[in-house]
Simulated assay, not measured.
Amino acid sequence: MADHNFDAAGMAREQQGRMAASAVIGLNALKPMMQFQVSLLRLWADNMESLAHNYEKGLDSFSSAVEHRWQEKRAA
């Protein structure tokens, strides 16, 4: 019994160490899932950018076709 030390500060440090270790384990387990989520978000953003570019290109060609037809009717 003499070798057991019941000081509160030592027990608190041990408990904090265990809590920190379990937090590190949890964050290490979470890291691959977060990386996957980030890669999916980047893929989605790239697709949205591509969609916006195609939409602008289609809108430009449509408006130029309408303008060309309007000029043909005006000239006739």
Rank of each mutant, 00 (worst) to 15 (best):
Y55R: 08
K31W: 00
A12V: 02
A29G: 02
G26N: 05
M19C: 09
E14Y: 00
M33E: 14
A23E: 10
D3P: 00
A2E: 15
Q71I: 07
F6T: 10
K73R: 13
D7Q: 04
K73W: 09
Q71D: 13
H53M: 04
G58I: 03
Q71L: 12
L40S: 13
R69I: 12
S61R: 08
D46N: 11
N28T: 07
S39F: 00
A20V: 03
S61I: 06
W70P: 00
R18G: 08
K73G: 04
G26E: 13
L43R: 13
G26T: 02
D7V: 01
A65W: 03
L43I: 04
A65S: 11
M11G: 12
A20Q: 10
S39V: 02
A21H: 02
R13M: 11
R69L: 14
E14F: 01
S64P: 01
K73T: 13
M1S: 15
L59V: 09
E49N: 08
G17P: 01
F62D: 15
L40C: 10
W44S: 15
Q35W: 00
L43H: 10
M1G: 15
L59C: 04
A12E: 12
D46W: 01
Q35C: 03
G58C: 07
A2Y: 04
D60E: 15
L41T: 15
W44R: 15
R42T: 09
R69D: 14
M19T: 11
V38Q: 06
R74Q: 11
A75K: 11
L51T: 14
M48G: 02
N28D: 14
L27M: 07
M19R: 14
K31E: 11
L59W: 06
R13F: 07
L27K: 07
L41V: 14
A9V: 04
H68K: 15
E14K: 04
R42G: 06
H53S: 10
N5A: 09
Q16N: 14
N28L: 03
A9N: 03
F6R: 06
L40Y: 05
M48H: 05
M1V: 11
E49A: 13
E56D: 10
A21K: 07
M19D: 15
A29E: 05
S61Q: 08
V66K: 07
L27P: 00
A21L: 08
S63V: 14
